[in-house]
Amino acid sequence: MPREQNHPIRLGLIGCGGIVQKSHLQGLLDIPDLVNISAIADPIPENRNRIGTAADIISEQRYEDHRHMLARAELDAVIIATPHHLHAEHVIEAAQAGVAIISEKPMATSLKEADQLLDAVKKHNVPYAIVHNFLYTPGTAEALRLLREENTGTRQTGRALSLFGKTEDQADPNSVWRASRAAGGGCIGDSAYHEIYLIETMIGSPVRYVEARVHTKFFDFDVDDVAFLLFEHENGAISTVSTSWGMPAGDQSICEVYTRTHGIRIVGRGRELRYLDKSNRRWQPVDLDHGLDNDALSRAGHANYFAATLKALADGKPPPITAEHARHNLSIIHAAHQATTQRKAVDVTEL
């Protein structure tokens, strides 16, 4: 059973790079009643100094090596925000240290690593959560409320799309770890990951069968830059996910579901929301009334996710996004690669 944590939770950060600087930090600083950033770790001095200064961390609690932080700092929990290929290693080390763990996605780069990670979490009896931040944006939250509370009917189909136009510099594996297989990069695990959990949650039923084509078409690197996925859900609904780093469509991102009478479309991963009544065939914008400026809106998913997850940990309750969610999403990605090789649908429950 989860155990109650100190109030506020004493938090350590493993990794202080771009995602922490742009999205994590301000959301954490906004909930001082729930969390206090007590220590940080990053091998890059500039990252340590930037976050350390912003979070007012004393020099003794700014570590180059996260293992030293885990051994010396008084912590209740850590957030892991490192390159994908390090997630499993860092989670296992944090579990051995006996702290609660919140990890950026994906949980690992393979199902074998994922299962080793889960064994360590179970052995050391520590809470483990994965960051599915776009479930917590204003548009997504309102879309899920509408689907839950309004008489929209049974969800039949869905579609998610995330198309980006990366430059050659942004796709250079020598300087961008997301463009390197060794670091766990690739568009399906980095970008489509979000659309997978979004469309599954919007449909309201787990993905069972996966058909897909995952390829490299636009850049000279060893990871995928285009992924087209077709899902059949447990309830019989069907949906698609399309993602690419080489298809500049104004950085277009949508996630939409349809019933026989209505449609609901999330735009910009929850920055906007639209509603369709098929009787008049017109999409209408939904007033989200969040009162956030553009900067705060861009961070809202992480901020709301951390608030919900840290509140659950503080109260000794399971986190909202669990290890089971994390492994299931990774299984879908693994199934997509397998379906590409075999050129046939893959049953996720067999992985």
Rank of each mutant, 00 (worst) to 15 (best):
P127Y: 13
A129L: 06
V99A: 14
A100K: 11
G98H: 06
P106F: 04
H124Q: 09
E104N: 10
A100Q: 13
D115H: 13
K112H: 10
I102R: 11
D119Q: 11
V126C: 06
A100L: 14
Q116Y: 14
L111S: 14
V126H: 05
A94R: 15
I79N: 10
A129S: 11
V126P: 01
H84C: 05
K122C: 08
T82K: 05
L117G: 04
T82H: 11
I130W: 11
N125G: 07
A108L: 05
H90A: 07
T109M: 13
S103K: 13
L111T: 14
E89K: 14
A81E: 09
I130F: 09
D115T: 05
H87A: 02
V91R: 02
L117D: 02
P83K: 03
A95E: 07
P83S: 05
P83F: 10
G98R: 06
H90E: 11
Q96T: 01
E104T: 04
D76Q: 00
I92P: 10
H90I: 08
V91E: 09
G98C: 11
K105H: 07
A77D: 03
K122R: 15
T109G: 15
Q116R: 10
I92N: 07
E104R: 07
A114F: 14
P83G: 01
L75K: 02
D119L: 12
D115C: 01
L111Y: 05
L118S: 06
H84Q: 10
V99E: 08
K122F: 13
E89P: 09
I80R: 04
Q96N: 03
D76T: 05
E93L: 00
A129C: 08
L118N: 03
L111H: 04
I102D: 01
I102M: 08
A94K: 09
S103P: 12
A120F: 04
L111E: 15
H84W: 11
S110F: 04
S110C: 02
G98N: 04
A100C: 09
H87W: 02
E104D: 15
H84L: 06
A120G: 10
L111C: 10
K123F: 11
H84R: 13
A95M: 08
Y128S: 11
A88L: 00
V91T: 07
T109C: 15
A88P: 03
D76V: 00
L75G: 05
I101W: 08
Y128F: 08
V99P: 01
A95K: 04
A94D: 09
D76R: 01
N125T: 06
E93K: 10
D115G: 06
Q96A: 09
V121L: 12
I80C: 00
